[in-house]
Amino acid sequence: MQLFFNIILVYLGTIGFGILVNVPKRALNVGGIVSVMGWLIYYFYTQYVGGYIEANALGTFSIGIFGIVASRCKKLPVIIFNIPALVPLVPGGQAYQVMKYLATGNYTLAKSYLIQVVFIAGAIAAGFLFSEFANQLFLRLKKKISIKKKPF
């Protein structure tokens, strides 16, 4: 039941952020689904396999791939799906801890959380980079296969 509740909150949070940044209405539902798919990969990875950094990279990679597919289906730019879908993976809790420990003077814990934020942000960037790389690789392979099939 807790997982179902979290899925609903991820979906609604993505829709809400999409409304704030003026995502077209026809893209809101699909953007929420893209976000839920990425968050589920993140959730199951953290629960059953490993740490947050790898989970963020895989979740962002899947958001990138699903966002590309959604952008082709809806004929809209991919950023319309990627940016709102990324909201559940942003390390807001760790960033808050950095500010809290800096304000209270506990610089050791602040440094530890800052390192986590930097690595998670890097994993998010790498996830998007690899999803775009996979898309470009797919398009090139598709183009080469279609060239080989044409008779001369």
Rank of each mutant, 00 (worst) to 15 (best):
S146Y: 01
P77S: 07
Q97A: 09
V117K: 09
V118K: 06
Q94T: 11
L58S: 04
N82K: 11
I147M: 10
Y45K: 00
Q97T: 05
V10I: 15
K148I: 05
K111M: 12
E132N: 14
A85P: 06
S35I: 01
L40Y: 01
K149T: 10
T104P: 02
L141A: 04
Q136M: 08
G122R: 01
F138L: 15
F119L: 15
S71A: 14
Y101N: 15
P151F: 10
L9P: 02
G59F: 00
V90W: 09
L86D: 06
Y11L: 13
F119I: 07
N6Q: 15
T104N: 13
Y107M: 14
G127M: 02
I7G: 03
L137M: 12
T108C: 00
C73A: 12
F5Y: 14
K144E: 13
L141V: 06
G127F: 01
L40Q: 02
I80N: 05
F138V: 09
T14G: 08
N22M: 07
Y42Q: 03
R72V: 02
F152Y: 14
S112I: 09
L86V: 06
I53N: 01
S112L: 12
K25E: 02
N6S: 14
I80E: 01
I120Y: 03
L76F: 09
G92S: 07
K25F: 12
G127T: 02
A103K: 08
I147N: 08
S112P: 00
I15L: 11
I65M: 08
L139S: 06
N6W: 06
A125S: 15
A70K: 08
E132D: 15
L141W: 11
T60G: 10
G31I: 08
Y113V: 07
A125H: 05
I147Y: 08
Y52F: 02
V87Y: 09
T60C: 06
L137R: 09
Y101K: 10
K75H: 14
G51I: 01
A121M: 10
N6R: 10
V69C: 07
A134R: 09
Y113R: 07
G67C: 03
N106E: 13
L20V: 10
L3W: 06
G50E: 04
K143G: 00
N82P: 02
N82F: 04
K74P: 00
N135M: 04
G67V: 03
K150A: 06
F5D: 14
